[in-house]
Amino acid sequence: MKRLLQIGILLACLAFLSWFGHRHLPWLDLNTCMADPERYDGALVEDFREPLIAAVYQDGFLLQQKNGPSIRVQADTAGLGLRKGAYVGLRARYHREGYLEALSLNVAEGRRRKIYLSLIPLLLLLPLLAWRFRWNVRGWYLEPRDNA
């Protein structure tokens, strides 16, 4: 009973602080700006939803978000190696006319590769944990197996 109470309290703390982080995040996101362009004209935007480059132009690119609106970004593209389909890290100023002016920009080269590579240790860890620990049904807890 005491353990269940501890688990409940910890879950409540995690939930509250997740909400707190969401509510008081210092970054402004693009969707908020696009919902009220007049209010956020000139605002600094730092939060995007998995942003990637949909098209490259001479004076910038088209930024596409996953499950979100796209927007034109004005940027000095020389030497940045921008290419369609690449993920980007971006800080930009929003303009009510419906475009962003890039302040700092980084092409996240190899992000997909990084994600796939990251699956390897995860896939190795899960069997290792299953091999070293077992679930005690009667006590309702994990304990090391004899091989640990």
Binding site: I7, L10, C13, L25, D47, N67, G139
Partner: peptide, 29 residues
């Protein structure tokens, strides 16, 4: 689900990780 990003940022902080550690250890003997 990119829309969840702002909700999960806390879990990638030391405070969030330590709370998650405590929670996980409650599942052990």
């Amino acid at each position: 689900f990119p829309v969840t990003k702002t909700w999960t940022i806390f879990l990638h902080t030391p405070a969030g990780a330590l709370l998650a550690c405590l929670l996980l250890t409650r599942l052990l003997r």
